[in-house]
Design a protein around this nucleic acid. Sequence first.
DNA 1: AATGAATGAGCCTTCATTCAT
DNA 2: GATGAATGAAGGCTCATTCAT
Lengths: 211, 211, 211, 211
Amino acid sequence: MTQSTAVEPAFDRLLQVAVEVFAECGFREATVREICSRANVNVASVNYYFRSKEALYAQALAFAFREANRLYPLDAILDKGLPAEQRLTMFIGNFLHKLLDDSHLGLHSKLIAREIADPTKALDEIIETAIVPQFVLLVEIIQQILGASAEKLVVQRCLLSIFGQCLMFKHSRSIIDRLYPELIADESAIQASAEHIAQFSLAALARFAQQ
Amino acid sequence: MTQSTAVEPAFDRLLQVAVEVFAECGFREATVREICSRANVNVASVNYYFRSKEALYAQALAFAFREANRLYPLDAILDKGLPAEQRLTMFIGNFLHKLLDDSHLGLHSKLIAREIADPTKALDEIIETAIVPQFVLLVEIIQQILGASAEKLVVQRCLLSIFGQCLMFKHSRSIIDRLYPELIADESAIQASAEHIAQFSLAALARFAQQ
Amino acid sequence: MTQSTAVEPAFDRLLQVAVEVFAECGFREATVREICSRANVNVASVNYYFRSKEALYAQALAFAFREANRLYPLDAILDKGLPAEQRLTMFIGNFLHKLLDDSHLGLHSKLIAREIADPTKALDEIIETAIVPQFVLLVEIIQQILGASAEKLVVQRCLLSIFGQCLMFKHSRSIIDRLYPELIADESAIQASAEHIAQFSLAALARFAQQ
Amino acid sequence: MTQSTAVEPAFDRLLQVAVEVFAECGFREATVREICSRANVNVASVNYYFRSKEALYAQALAFAFREANRLYPLDAILDKGLPAEQRLTMFIGNFLHKLLDDSHLGLHSKLIAREIADPTKALDEIIETAIVPQFVLLVEIIQQILGASAEKLVVQRCLLSIFGQCLMFKHSRSIIDRLYPELIADESAIQASAEHIAQFSLAALARFAQQ
DNA sequence: AATGAATGAGCCTTCATTCAT
DNA sequence: GATGAATGAAGGCTCATTCAT
């Protein structure tokens, strides 16, 4: 607000650093002092700009979702004119890349995964604004593949099967890094993994559709 | 640590309570005082018996794995005489029940899931002693289904697909609780979910086997 | 401070609000932010107009005395033509009403009482400009009742006896509120209390005058 | 508890220092650091022994009352065989000395006066346990002097008149120190002041008794 | 003249750890 | 061998104050 072309405003810097630190350490382990230190601002800044550490966390989480969706937009997948199979493949590819993005901005999904695995009070709002929409989208695609007669519970379980395969790469990343690093070694490996999940899921869904 | 045959009540109580508390709160949020208080021992006991909070955590984690495997033994699944499809179904059922056991003993898997999602220095040893064996077992079953000609990378990805579907119920438990609680409402619901995963995976593996 | 004739809204508002807030909370508990917020001025205004929180306090205290004397003028009591007994009764009534005025303007005496009970550096000036004149007035009245031969120390002690009875209602207000609320319940109760103090004191002074 | 003949236990030292510091500075202005520093204990000790600064304050206040009553016992005054006038004189003497005790232990009454002038949550209990008993005692003496037919409200106002005269020396101590220091210069001056209050009050009560 | 952003000192409290017993 | 007392480092937060505008 004060500087125009110079370094980013303190508020924004704080938000980005908060995503980093919370992603690395979790809410409790992260300290306000560390965040402020990395953002090159005063210790009191967190309380000045965000009122409390907790409020900063909530905003950082929301920011992480916004960034993740901005960098990996779902636009093409929303096109209902495309074949469901193709949309599913695109969705999985998009989602997996989002999860495994190791760039500076890949921390977003780490923070999000953390929040899901060990929820705070901030989770409920996140589910409403960020997770439900993705679920709705995938449910629609699955229903298209399984046919209108598919049971609701079956659709839900298929949804979880697909998300689970993707999230495995996030939540169990530490294990994959150690045992199967070649599966996520580079961009093309990740793409291959995404294609595997798509084929695996489409194969299963096809069988379910027959019944 | 030092004692071999003698029963050590305080030591053991501390270990069990530590699993509970670390599972509920995570490493940082858990306090030594809370653990000692629940175990009815002196505040200094953790440092006396385990040298530090961190060391207690590592031992609690190892203990959780031992207990989880003791309570949900893989014996039947190890029987190579059974059809691979049946063994896979049994494995998934066993694994999912282990993950979703909400009894006093279900805390073990919660602690383990926490460690995987947010690894500490303790993880490496855990992978060697507890995770690799399960992976080896499942790899063997998958190879049997896919046939000897299956590519190693494909087998690994199928392994992750299956584990991912199961772990979804653990790592994203907070979301499932909110959006699809009926999928894990009771024992029979869990069983149904396990069967879904088995069918989903077998359907996919069958298609992969054809290629 | 600098302006002489021009009305200075922000400055004055700050002063009035400061009396309120300091009276309610005391010097330390009161915050500059709260004062500025209630006065609808910038946080920096206190330092801008008054140099520091402490200086604002001193000015607020002086302002409170000015206001208290403006609202409860001693004019009639100054008339030496009236009988001393009547002047004493009027003085006590005036003083007690001043002390117990719970209206917006009663905060003045609360702030003053606070400063006396827990003096700051600001007290000395206050004594000179505001307290001594009242003491001088009451001493004169007492001397008139006791006669010219009255010892100085006796006069002083009688002075304190009379002030003490009045101030009891201010300094121990918290206790009276709890134990004898009916003594200050309303205007007429306060008047009755004032008359009691006057009678009590006149009876005692009469006996002292005989000796 | 650990040391026997050595310096006083930390708990007791903390309590005494707390009375000192709270009396000097008030609750808010006083800092835990200052208290611990003067008591030669660790900063964490207040929380260790008393759970919080607030709890320490409450205990210090109760301790101040205990000490004040221990050093200035009311025993003789409780003897209903003595003439009421003598008992009143003794009560006032006892009370005034208690209020003006400037020894290390005179801080007790300063702390108490502070709490009355600027009450915290701790006041209610203090009123019940320490103030009401004194009021009851004085009410009984006054009733004896005024006669059984005395109105309740009159008795209460006389009570406040007497307490007010005494408390003047406490609450307005800062003014008396500056304007009339000879009234409280030494032990005999205080005694003379006490006798003045007794005579003043007895004279007034005698007149009230006639009516 | 007046402000809003930003600061740094200091507050109470918590906690894992240590030490004398 | 085992404990209860005590500690010091560090945490989040508040607040009067300052500074560039």
